[in-house]
Nucleic acid binder design. Structure first.
Lengths: 185, 185
DNA sequence: ACCTGAACACCGTTCAAGT
DNA sequence: ACCTGAACACCGTTCAAGT
């Protein structure tokens, strides 16, 4: 049942990430959790950044899969996106944080995730439920809004005492409502 | 002309941050740039996080000031926000990244920055240029969208070959256009 | 009150060596 | 091909000591 060593190292690193952020992902602790020495990971990853990148790549693949399930509507996809981000803050920050490489597995996974959303937006447009226009650009706006809403919510930049309605979910819902209003009948 | 030591330490730290991110902000280098020993900063900041928080706090104050200038319209404020974020990526990520404290100077500075935008949104609504509704919530959506657009642009999650129009500025402009269309005449 | 130098524990990475 | 243990340079933080 145990996957190959590379996968088990990614598993261990992801769990450490969830608990304490990127700083808690030390190669010594990763090795200990996987039952190997502290520099055995260097046989599978170029360095620590490469290991973190492998986590992000896996998260993007899973995100694309979750987009595929459900009714295939943009609204549901973005809500799934928010649930994932708020449930796994560190994975979210890592996945959509800055990269280094150009044409890595990460870039391809990100492209696939976006493509699923773009198709859903295009369908919605044809049904007259969203404004016309380039679906790639509209999907980018949706992703940007959800990303920012989740980021600000996690950082405590949205909430203030007595304003529980300022949630990431509500902000994204507002955006969809505005888009619906902006769609000619 | 030299400010007090605390300010000069923040200056040095901010420059190191711009060059190499939070990891490049080592207390040894900060001390060296400020002409003191590597642990003199501990007389002015509780720890490294506290020093980074001081940078973020200062950036938020400056952002609120820049919001105050110009025509006082939300569209211009958000464009100023994007320019700052794209020009100083590391300060942007630090400022809107996760915090620890609750009621620190950082929280107050963030509140002030948001308040300026909220007032501008309320004015726009009264002029019939933006949809009615809670201006706090609409301002939060604007900030979230701009934040996410800048974040994805910086991370390379927006661009792809031959799609230079997928910029943070354009996405935010699209949002303002949708909001205008969604406003009854 | 503010600063210094030494010291501690920790980390990423490299390398010679093992199977 | 994959792993280990020692070693190196570096870092955040603490502490005894100075002015």
């Amino acid at each position: 049942m145990v996957a190959n060593r590379r996968d088990s190292l990614i598993d261990a690193a992801a769990q450490l990430l969830d608990r304490g952020g990127p700083a808690a992902v030390t190669l010594r602790e990763v090795g200990r959790a996987a039952g190997v020495s502290h520099n055995a990971p260097y046989r599978h990853f170029a360095d620590k950044s490469d290991l973190l990148e492998a986590i992000a790549s896996r998260e993007l693949e899973r995100l694309a899969d979750s987009f595929g399930k459900g009714g295939g509507r943009p609204r549901e996809m973005l809500q799934a996106y928010l649930q994932w981000a708020l449930l796994y803050p560190e994975r979210f920050r890592l996945t959509f944080g800055p990269w280094r490489g150009d044409e890595t597995a990460l870039g391809k996974a990100a492209f696939r995730t976006r493509a699923v959303l773009v198709e859903a937006v295009a369908r919605e447009q044809q049904e007259g439920a969203m404004p016309k226009g380039d679906p790639v650009r509209l999907a980018a706006l949706l992703l940007a809004s959800a990303n920012g809403a989740a980021s600000l919510a996690l950082a405590g930049h949205l909430g203030r005492p007595g304003r529980a309605d300022l949630s990431a979910e509500n902000l994204v819902a507002d955006l969809f409502d505005y888009l619906e209003t902006a769609t000619p009948a």
